[in-house]
Design a protein around this nucleic acid. Structure first.
Lengths: 150, 150
DNA sequence: TTACAAATGCAACAATATTGTATTTAGAAA
DNA sequence: TTTCTAAATACAATATTGTTGCATTTGTAA
């Protein structure tokens, strides 16, 4: 699931988007690519605690603008960030996949393989994009719970 | 769309949920039932500016617990509150409808008539609830835009 | 190596939300 | 009606999340 990439590939990614190769940016990239779930803003902040808070916000913002990551709010309204796997372009995301929010471990999974079902909205509504949220138990947590019961 | 209710009905609602009939609660109820869209927290706060901020938060929280209203985050992560039209019960909401966020007027519409499509998740994921978000132009704003073009 | 735009770090601030506690009030009981 | 009490409100303080402005540092092109 998690794409393993080395530092050279992250440097390439930055260069490709006309972003300077800086330590903070490379560390944020490497951290986010090492996980198969989205990372909440509070988590990011505590893990990247050597990077200035404001710098972190600005890094996340440019990455989002460039289509490198996308922001998703979990069920508590907390901002989460995940790498884009679909073909996102600058200022034009294609993140119409399912976001699964585990109620136990709080992780947010991007289920890219699940594309949106077709929907016909009430007349007058013109939808430009969709996002689907589900909450429940992720595979790990549902296993744990099953183990407890036995 | 907007359910017209009078003050006696709001008093009944409070009583039914074992909540004391107070001025602030009645005014919040009447305000929210007068609209067919969700209301953002900032809007609520400025409209209900005679009610203490903290009191407003606490009112919204008990209403949500009791299944009278539900909270929905818009595309900017801003909290919005809307009355529950489906049969929501205490601590057990049934708000699996589409939330439509207009990119022009920023309103959030609860499209209750649209029920969720069936989805089969990747194995291991056990979903307990779904929410669907769409963004684009609402009927009013798409009309306005059409008028501009002509 | 130099120069400069871009990125970072720091300070201040704004907006959103929570906790604790004193005061007030709705509604039950006398 | 009056009294009493738990619940609700108001107020103060604080926490969290996010933004803006500016000085300093740094990546990179010349």
């Amino acid at each position: 699931m998690a794409q393993i990439k080395n530092n050279y590939q992250f440097e390439d990614m930055l260069q490709k988007h006309n972003l300077k190769k800086t330590g903070p940016r490379l560390r944020v990239l490497s951290m986010m690519y090492s996980k198969n779930t989205a990372t909440s803003q509070p988590d990011l902040e505590s893990v990247m605690n050597d990077i200035d808070r404001v710098t972190l916000y600005r890094i996340l913002n440019v990455f989002e603008e460039k289509g490198i990551i996308h922001k998703v709010f979990d069920l508590n309204g907390t901002a989460n960030y995940a790498v884009c796997h679909s073909n996102c372009q600058e200022n034009h995301h294609h993140d119409e996949h399912l976001h699964f929010n585990c109620t136990a471990c709080k992780n947010v999974y991007c289920l890219n393989e699940l594309n949106m079902p077709r929907l016909n909205l009430p007349s007058g509504f013109e939808a430009q994009s969709f996002t689907l949220y589900a909450s429940g138990l992720c595979p790990k947590c549902s296993k744990k719970q099953a183990a407890k019961v036995n």
